Deep mutational scan, measured.
Amino acid sequence: KYTPEEIEKLKELRIKHGNDWATIGAALGRSASSVKDRCR
């Protein structure tokens, strides 16, 4: 489950890194597949 803060951070990282899920996941301390599924 993602907190509202994590979702905000995810949005920012998505703008910065696009679909680089590995980088976004690492920044959030989550797996690449987890953040990818969250963005769907």
Rank of each mutant, 00 (worst) to 15 (best):
K1N: 15
K1S: 12
K1C: 14
Y2R: 04
Y2M: 13
Y2E: 03
Y2S: 03
Y2T: 09
Y2L: 06
Y2C: 02
Y2W: 14
T3M: 05
T3W: 00
T3G: 00
T3P: 07
T3S: 12
P4T: 14
P4I: 14
P4M: 14
P4D: 11
P4G: 11
P4E: 13
P4N: 09
E5P: 00
E6A: 06
E6Y: 02
E6T: 04
E6I: 01
I7F: 01
I7P: 05
I7W: 08
I7M: 11
E8H: 11
E8I: 06
E8M: 10
E8R: 09
E8Y: 01
E8Q: 12
K9Y: 06
K9L: 11
K9F: 03
K9S: 13
K9E: 10
L10Y: 03
L10M: 02
L10N: 03
L10R: 02
L10W: 00
K11L: 10
K11F: 06
K11M: 04
K11D: 09
K11T: 13
K11E: 12
K11N: 09
K11R: 11
K11I: 09
K11W: 04
E12Y: 05
E12C: 04
E12M: 12
E12N: 15
E12W: 09
L13F: 14
R14W: 12
R14L: 13
R14F: 09
I15R: 13
I15C: 14
I15D: 13
I15N: 15
K16R: 14
K16F: 04
K16I: 04
K16G: 05
K16T: 14
K16A: 13
H17T: 01
H17L: 07
H17W: 09
H17M: 04
H17I: 00
G18H: 05
G18Y: 01
G18K: 09
G18Q: 08
G18T: 04
G18S: 05
N19E: 15
N19P: 12
N19A: 12
N19L: 04
N19I: 04
D20S: 02
D20I: 02
D20F: 01
W21K: 05
W21F: 10
W21A: 09
W21V: 07
W21C: 03
W21M: 05
W21R: 05
W21Q: 06
W21I: 03
A22C: 06
A22P: 11
A22S: 10
A22R: 10
T23K: 13
T23V: 14
T23G: 08
I24T: 05
I24M: 07
I24C: 07
I24A: 06
G25A: 14
G25R: 00
G25S: 08
A26C: 07
A26S: 11
A26N: 10
A26P: 05
A26L: 10
A26T: 09
A26G: 09
A27H: 10
A27M: 04
A27Q: 12
A27E: 08
A27T: 10
A27L: 11
A27G: 06
A27I: 09
L28R: 01
L28W: 00
L28D: 06
L28M: 14
G29V: 00
G29C: 04
R30L: 11
R30N: 03
R30H: 11
R30P: 05
R30I: 08
S31H: 05
S31A: 07
S31Y: 00
S31I: 00
S31E: 11
S31P: 11
A32Q: 07
A32F: 03
A32I: 08
A32M: 06
A32K: 03
S33M: 06
S33V: 13
S33Y: 05
S33I: 08
S34R: 00
S34K: 00
S34W: 09
S34T: 05
S34Y: 07
V35T: 03
V35R: 00
K36P: 04
K36C: 11
K36L: 06
D37A: 15
D37I: 07
D37K: 15
D37Y: 03
R38A: 15
R38F: 15
C39R: 00
C39H: 07
C39D: 07
C39E: 08
C39F: 09
C39Y: 09
R40Y: 12
R40F: 11
R40M: 14
R40L: 15
R40C: 14
